[in-house]
């Protein structure tokens, strides 16, 4: 329960009731974030990396998100994995609309985030033109590590009750990344 004490509380408006509501939401968010039921809307190449992330090597189950549900009614997170073509767009929106609240959307890969290098008549330039997105994961395809980063970012956002779209940061730009990379390199190079 140590985590609970760190919960953020926010006051919206004045008065006690406002305070209680946010607190409750935060508690709910904390409870929700480790049992995400996911709907993998896998269409293209990124689906292969999605399988890898779910497979034993990377094991998405460690983050409480291993249960795929192929019914939109039963799922919390919609993973949009792969290119969404104009023809697919109505299907995607329908699936999104069928999901029950609360629902989150992750755009997996460059194609889902912005259309990628398919800048043409057939492809939707980013699913955020159709449905709201919570987390963008860049990469073509993103490495499983990036996917896990994205999942953790989403869990973090759920805990914070934050619905603004965010992109998984390029860790190379973060502070201290050089040293971390050097360490990683040395671990990998060990015989």
């Amino acid at each position: 329960m140590a985590d609970l004490s760190k919960l953020e509380t926010r006051t919206i408006g004045g008065g006690e009731s406002g305070f209680v509501t946010t607190k409750f939401e935060a508690l709910l968010g904390w409870a929700r974030k480790y049992s995400l039921f996911q709907y993998p809307f896998a269409t293209a190449c990124c689906g292969m990396e999605f399988f890898s992330t779910a497979s034993p090597r990377y094991d998405i189950a460690r983050f409480g998100a291993e249960a795929p549900r192929f019914s939109p009614r039963q799922s919390d997170v919609l993973w949009v994995v792969g290119t969404i073509s104009q023809r697919q767009a109505p299907v995607l929106r329908r699936v999104y609309e069928q999901m029950t609240e609360p629902k989150w959307v992750i755009a997996f890969g460059t194609c889902a985030s912005c259309g990628g290098f398919y800048d043409n008549y057939a492809t939707v330039p980013g699913i955020d033109k159709i449905i709201p997105v919570d987390v963008f994961i860049p990469g073509c395809p993103p490495r499983p590590e990036a996917v896990l980063d994205g999942l953790m970012l989403l869990q973090d956002k759920i805990g914070r009750c934050d619905r603004t779209p965010e992109t998984v940061k390029n860790t190379l730009l973060a502070e201290g990344a050089d040293e971390a990379l050097e360490k990683l390199y040395q671990i990998r190079m060990k015989p």
């Binding site: 985030s113 912005c114 259309g115 290098f117 800048d119 330039p125 980013g126 955020d128 033109k129 963008f136 860049p138 603004t164 779209p165 965010e166 992109t167 940061k169 390029n170």
Partner: peptide
């Protein structure tokens, strides 16, 4: 559509 980097608002590369 406030995407953060690396994505731009109207991504695409003619």
């Amino acid at each position: 559509f406030n995407k953060l980097g690396p994505f731009l608002q109207d991504e695409g590369m003619p």
